[in-house]
């Protein structure tokens, strides 16, 4: 490695061995760089910047609390604190919808890269999900704020919350892998997913209690993955209880099944992506 002093001369080459990551480590650094990029771009030129990640769920909760408190509280005594109930459900829901919406279009948006650089394609949907998770973690500051206002203490089960977030993240990665590959071949999926998300949101007890539903719907609800993930987090933080074996098992099962399906579809189709983007 001989460094010459002349600046304008062609650069001398540095020993090659320490220039590159081994192939196995590259993906993680790329994911990190892409998440950083998204994060920088999201808040560039915004006055409040990162504060929006906190303000947004907070304002949303206020609106819903005003509208729904009258409607709900008389029906249901099982919810100990309605605003906390709301914000926990909303933020977790937002994580999923944000992650899948971004993940779904990730391959299409990465087309200029995919056409020129060899790169593991799963990096893009996974990166978008992780970006949504980062945003979610910031929105937990809003949750903390609401809990502080109501002097809501943390029970020992709060320690399980990271586990719940992990399950939900895996679920979102699976779903994003699936959606991103479908969206490459049929752009309709993008429009359809918007409708599915809206319907799914109303079918998930975000601003109502599951107990107001008829019995048969309550049993169907046990198979709604988002209900399971949100129940997991609410039980840990709001009811301060063990999420329970059933919820735990359901969360894990959905995460693994979704990851399995998403991964299988993605691997099967990824070689043909480039012909369609």
């Amino acid at each position: 490695m001989s460094q010459t002093a002349t600046a304008e001369a062609a650069p001398t080459t540095i020993s090659k061995s320490d220039a590159w990551y081994p192939t196995s480590q590259r993906d993680m650094y790329v994911v990190k760089q892409l998440v950083t990029k998204d994060f920088k771009l999201k808040y560039r030129r915004s006055v409040l910047g990162i504060a929006w990640s906190v303000l947004n769920p907070l304002l949303m909760m206020c609106v819903q609390a005003v509208v729904f408190t009258k409607l709900m509280s008389r029906h249901d005594q099982t919810i100990p604190n309605f605003p906390i109930y709301l914000i926990l459900g909303n933020t977790a829901w937002h994580l999923m919808s944000d992650a899948t919406n971004r993940g779904m279009e990730s391959i299409i948006h990465a087309q200029s890269l995919l056409k020129k650089v060899r790169i593991n394609r799963w990096v893009f949907p996974v990166q978008k999900v992780l970006f949504a998770v980062v945003n979610y973690v910031f929105s937990l500051a809003a949750v903390a704020l609401v809990m502080a206002i109501f002097r809501w203490t943390l029970g020992p089960w709060a320690l399980l919350v990271p586990l719940g977030i992990l399950y939900l993240t895996v679920f979102c990665i699976g779903l994003s892998l699936l959606l991103s590959s479908l969206a490459v071949f049929f752009r309709d999926v993008i429009h359809l997913w918007g409708v599915v998300l809206t319907a799914w949101m109303y079918l998930t007890p975000l601003f109502y209690s599951v107990t107001i539903l008829p019995d048969w719907m309550q049993s169907v609800m046990r198979f709604n993955p988002m209900y399971l993930y949100i129940t997991f987090i609410r039980r840990c933080l709001l009811w301060k209880m063990n999420p329970g074996l059933l919820v735990h098992g359901g969360c894990i099962a959905w995460a693994l099944v979704m990851l399995g399906i998403g991964y299988a579809v993605f691997r099967k189709t990824e070689d043909r992506f480039i012909l369609f983007i």
Binding site: D18, Y21, R26, Y29
Partner: peptide, 17 residues
């Protein structure tokens, strides 16, 4: 500046490099 890091990562360069 940010692009150099992003592109470097895509090429597989180490951050320290």
């Amino acid at each position: 500046r940010e692009n150099i890091y992003l592109n470097g990562a895509l090429l597989g360069y180490r951050k320290e490099f």
